[in-house]
Measured scan of single mutants.
Amino acid sequence: MPSETPQAEVGPTGCPHRSGPHSAKGSLEKGSPEDKEAKEPLWIRPDAPSRCTWQLGRPASESPHHHTAPAKSPKILPDILKKIGDTPMVRINKIGKKFGLKCELLAKCEFFNAGGSVKDRISLRMIEDAERDGTLKPGDTIIEPTSGNTGIGLALAAAVRGYRCIIVMPEKMSSEKVDVLRALGAEIVRTPTNARFDSPESHVGVAWRLKNEIPNSHILDQYRNASNPLAHYDTTADEILQQCDGKLDMLVASVGTGGTITGIARKLKEKCPGCRIIGVDPEGSILAEPEELNQTEQTTYEVEGIGYDFIPTVLDRTVVDKWFKSNDEEAFTFARMLIAQEGLLCGGSAGSTVAVAVKAAQELQEGQRCVVILPDSVRNYMTKFLSDRWMLQKGFLKEEDLTEKKPWWWHLRVQELGLSAPLTVLPTITCGHTIEILREKGFDQAPVVDEAGVILGMVTLGNMLSSLLAGKVQPSDQVGKVIYKQFKQIRLTDTLGRLSHILEMDHFALVV
């Protein structure tokens, strides 16, 4: 994948999101292997301009796509893939009243899908469409860049269908997702969380590099694949309309690839034109409109599966009536509230959605109805927002919020430890010299600072030695090549209790 991002070429006709291997024109390309080798690009942008032909009021008969309808489940399912879809609609009884809503608040519980998330729908649909058009064949390999849930859905379907599955996901995604993927037989590649989507090191860039190296491999490409919004247009939206008897006044959905909100909203605009569509985008993402909503100094966020630093091709923002931004604290607070007060075992993005819903639905009156999409299960986040310690460490809970008995030293300040200034190293000294210094002084790690004293990161003896043994660096290389740029900081005025929580999850903390 090139470091400079080429513009994806656009073909003359058809839909841009065809499933299957992508040609340089962004659509299915038939021909000899030699032709494909000559024409197939190194990668295709996940934010390529959409060429979708959908228009409100256009006859369904003019759609270029294969459409399906929700099917009634048999008493005995032939395999677990038949437990994807037909998820329950559940009334939220307490939270709406707590925040003064007059309307009825309903939750579409997508964590009841077989793999635990709304992404099971698009995973199965992308595979079925690729099999139907002859792209996927027995023994082929599926590769997908994902925040985890699409990966789980694909790995689940691949396990049943017999495909090899490789999932490329950023490091910030939970260990629970990784464990589930491994249990399903998927191979996992992790990428830096802070890598831009168009960087060769991003999950998108690495996935395309693997595709170019592995024979008979395919990126189904949830960011561009029409099967993504079509899955929701054909099934999720129809289920909502049936469950609500066609009567709903507002739908609120958090947005990642945009397939969920695009597919549902398009069908609702056709069948229930008075329904307002509300999009939820986390602070630090750029999906919301108008652009002024996205202006923030924050560039990272903890909530998973929603928000991006690019506009995915499948996201149709014209069908969203209003956007709201959400933050991590309210997302996790509301997710825990949904679990504790409503018994809905949902993930953090569901918290984002409901946090926005109780604001947006203030305009609705008694007798009206708001539906929220709860995308995934708490299963993926047992060591994250479900953990009091994690919430404390991230600053989303305060010590006084917890009532468990603490040891005698818990409320003492870090400054009472009488710490001395640490050994520091410059980023320009060599790895070999740094190892000598650390061994001589008896230290395992040291902060790396520039000549102005600005902290650049941390270097550890173990990481340097393993990097040297693996051949990633040489003793003569500058130590700046092996620094940890993500590390926890703590102030002298913070409590030892807070430091204790940090050290339970990290090997060190830097006192500043």
Results as ranks from 00 to 15, higher is better:
L106E: 08
L124E: 11
A8F: 09
C52S: 01
A237F: 02
A159E: 08
S202H: 05
C244K: 02
D47I: 04
F112A: 05
P88G: 06
T68D: 10
K36L: 13
V252Y: 10
R132I: 07
T257M: 02
I166N: 07
T53A: 11
C244G: 02
A24H: 12
A8E: 11
G100P: 03
N212P: 04
H22T: 09
L56V: 13
S63D: 15
D198C: 09
D140S: 09
H67T: 08
R58F: 05
V189P: 06
E131A: 11
D238A: 11
G139W: 09
R164V: 07
G96T: 04
K94W: 10
A183E: 04
D86A: 11
I142D: 01
R161I: 07
I261A: 08
D120M: 07
L77S: 04
C165R: 03
Y233T: 00
G148L: 02
R276V: 12
K39A: 13
S23C: 06
E62C: 15
I264K: 04
M250C: 01
R132E: 10
R190T: 04
I84E: 08
L230S: 05
P88I: 08
R190A: 01
C275L: 07
R164I: 04
R164M: 00
L251P: 00
K36I: 12
F111M: 05
D249F: 02
P41Q: 11
Q55D: 11
K25W: 03
L106F: 15
D238M: 10
D238S: 14
A8L: 15
K82L: 07
P88Y: 03
E201H: 10
G274N: 10
K211P: 08
N149K: 01
L154K: 01
D221G: 07
N194A: 11
E4C: 15
H66Y: 15
K137M: 08
K269Q: 08
T262V: 09
Q7P: 10
H66N: 08
I188F: 05
K172M: 05
K137I: 10
G148W: 03
P145Y: 00
M169D: 01
G246D: 05
A226W: 08
P16H: 08
S227H: 10
C244L: 04
I76L: 15
F197E: 06
V168F: 05
S23D: 10
T257W: 00
I92A: 03
G100T: 05
M173T: 08
R58M: 10
H203T: 08
R224K: 09
K98Y: 07
L220V: 02
G11C: 09
Y233R: 00
R182L: 08
S227W: 05
M126L: 08
R164H: 14
K247F: 03
H66G: 10
G151P: 00
L184K: 00
C275V: 13
K94Q: 13
M126R: 06
S174G: 01
I264S: 05
I261D: 01
F99M: 13
H67D: 03
H65N: 04
C165K: 01
A207C: 05
C272I: 06
G14I: 12
L184W: 00
T135W: 11
K83N: 11
L251R: 01
M169I: 10
G26K: 10
P88D: 04
K97P: 07
E62I: 13
T68N: 14
P78H: 11
L28G: 10
P170D: 05
Q243A: 09
E62G: 14
G256S: 01
E9W: 05
N113F: 00
H65R: 02
G259L: 00
T257A: 06
N212E: 10
L248V: 13
E144G: 01
E176P: 00
K108A: 01
K267G: 08
L124D: 10
L81G: 14
Y223E: 01
V10E: 11
G185L: 00
E270C: 02
V168R: 04
A157Y: 07
S199P: 02
Y233A: 00
K98T: 10
L251K: 04
V178T: 04
I240H: 00
G185T: 00
P12L: 04
K267R: 09
I152N: 01
A24L: 13
E270N: 06
G57S: 14
A195F: 04
V118H: 11
T141F: 13
